[in-house]
Design a protein around this nucleic acid. Sequence first.
DNA 1: TTTTAATCAGACAAAGTTATCTGATTATTA
DNA 2: TAATAATCAGATAACTTTGTCTGATTAAAA
Lengths: 143, 143
Amino acid sequence: MTVIFSKKCEYGLQAVLYMAAKEPGCVCPSDEIADKLQIPKEFVSKILQSLTESGIVDSKKGKSGGFLLAKNPSKIRLIDIVTAIDGLDLFNRCVLGFPNCSPDQPCPVHDKWGELRTKAYKMLTDETIDKFKEKTLSKISKI
Amino acid sequence: MTVIFSKKCEYGLQAVLYMAAKEPGCVCPSDEIADKLQIPKEFVSKILQSLTESGIVDSKKGKSGGFLLAKNPSKIRLIDIVTAIDGLDLFNRCVLGFPNCSPDQPCPVHDKWGELRTKAYKMLTDETIDKFKEKTLSKISKI
DNA sequence: TTTTAATCAGACAAAGTTATCTGATTATTA
DNA sequence: TAATAATCAGATAACTTTGTCTGATTAAAA
């Protein structure tokens, strides 16, 4: 199998985009998120717990509790979520798995791949989640 | 964790590049490949077995046997190896894991990501392994 | 012809990821 | 204050990937 982000990270990104598409400050129970995104409830709950520690989301306990974004969506970048869940190995590791791949000891595809990787990193760094509100709503409605 | 290619695929790419860097028609025992690339012997052996079925490498049994490329390196593209081992899911699946991601039902990052993905696919499709002989030799010598 | 050194095949083991379950804790609301 | 509905925490199960082991088969070389 081939993957870019782990399932955890995919679900984390989906959940955060979902919350960003709702009214600001709106508290979402994990039940609701899991239901709307069709992903396992306990799993998404765990993922959001870890994002709470990273300061990206907040949680409210007790009745009518749930999860909500900890900051303004315009302050949350896609890369923040990826970093919190998967880390940045994707952008540091050699794509062919060679040890000590670096400009000094480049693997055969080092330069070509590095270019793509830099662009991907830039995209994730440039984009904040407030930009995706409309697109998320449109996508969610079709699930 | 975050991955692009599976370990199998990484090792497969490494091994094929290694064979392409040797004299044409040269038979490499799995021992030698495993040793030079510092990867598990039985594992690389299994991977090369599967690439034999895909017609990318050939194998010779018995004493002084081993693996060799089944075609001219100029006829083997990086994408052929990736396809044989990992498949093309990477280029078809939604990067956020949304179901039914398509131009009709795009995920929030569909367009931006699609662009990068297309470039990556093109790179793997354009590059044949004969182009990497020098770079592979230089990298191997430093492991 | 016997020994040797390799692939081949399949079972198995270890590790990591994904998913589920259970119970404790917390805070709202009736 | 009691009932309710949510997060939180930790154990465990299922699955996939990665890696190892053993023995059979094959073919070259002594």
